[in-house]
């Protein structure tokens, strides 16, 4: 007995009859959506526009320990400088910096933050008259082919002979110039006044700052151990208990000392040492 004889095939059988669904419902309930050109749904996330001052501040805070290196690039750009010049200058000034951001990347970040502005070099882009396109076809063959060219193609063929090609010409590199906001950031973070203000904030510790700067200003700088010994035993550090690291940290933050295999007073540190406020 075959299956056909067992089951009756009902031609008008509607499996959805009991469900009370008609075709219109089915269309609506379908999971399938035809592909639609939904490019208008793709949107770049709009980030709130912040002032350059805010953006620069965020940049400096976001790369801790690198603020002087970053701002050195800005200070160097009081005159227009190329990226290569900035890289050479900053890398020479901070040869031992360890950062995931190389100087060229920092330049990009500073531009994005609004501390530097990029100035395109005068356009040296040149348009070259192109060579004939059929360079792999013998000239006589080209001539023959041209004669055979249908009218519809003649225009294009003629145009090819006069085509111009653009080349990526070695242009003068664009330059970067510090913006007012960038220079403000330099002043706010690296200025002598800022350093003095920070030092005099806790004027009772001025003798300690003087001691540290004096030792670090010596030839070859001063080791951490020597500084610890000299500072940690000072009665001024007893209450509240402070350690040498606290003072070094503050001096480093204002750019008065740097770590170059030993603690070394910077130019600013030497200036501070000579300032009235720190004089014996």
């Amino acid at each position: 007995m075959s299956a056909i004889e067992v089951f009756e095939i009902e031609e008008r059988f509607n499996p959805l009859e009991d469900k009370g669904l008609d075709e219109a419902d089915l269309e609506q309930r379908s999971d399938y959506l035809p592909p639609v050109p939904d490019a208008e749904l793709s949107r770049r996330v709009k980030v709130g526009v912040q002032s350059p001052q805010k953006r620069i501040e965020r940049l400096l805070v976001g790369i801790p320990g690198q603020q002087f290196r970053i701002l050195h690039a800005v200070r160097f750009c009081v005159e227009p400088r190329t990226c290569d010049e900035i890289v050479a200058e900053v890398d020479a000034a901070y040869p031992r910096e360890v950062s995931v951001y190389d100087t060229a990347q920092l330049v990009g970040l500073l531009e994005e933050a609004g501390a530097l502005v990029r100035q395109a070099a005068p356009s040296a882009i040149r348009d070259e008259v192109g060579e004939e396109v059929g360079e792999e076809v013998a000239p006589d063959a080209q001539a023959r082919l041209k004669e055979q060219t249908p009218k519809g193609h003649a225009e294009g063929a003629d145009a090819r002979q006069e085509d111009e090609f653009l080349v990526v010409a070695p242009t003068a590199p664009s330059t970067y110039l510090a913006t007012p906001a960038g220079l403000e950031a330099v002043e706010a973070n690296c200025g002598r006044d800022v350093a003095l203000a920070l030092l005099t904030e806790e004027s009772r510790y001025l003798p300690l700052y003087r001691e540290i700067l004096k030792r670090t200003a010596a030839e070859g700088g001063c080791s951490t151990k020597t500084l610890d010994t000299a500072i940690d035993t000072n009665p001024l550090t007893e209450s509240p208990r402070r350690f040498c690291g606290y003072f070094l940290d503050r001096l480093e933050k204002v750019g008065a000392v740097r770590w170059l295999d030993s603690w070394v007073a910077t130019e600013l540190g030497r200036e501070l040492l000579a300032a009235d406020v720190l004089r014996d």
């Binding site: 990226c83 990347q105 990009g108 990526v168 242009t171 590199p173």
Partner: peptide
């Protein structure tokens, strides 16, 4: 082509990044 060429013509040393 023009956009690509113009971009590359004005590119800096950090172009790859």
């Amino acid at each position: 082509y023009r956009m690509i060429r113009d971009y590359l013509s004005a590119a800096d040393s950090n172009v790859l990044t």
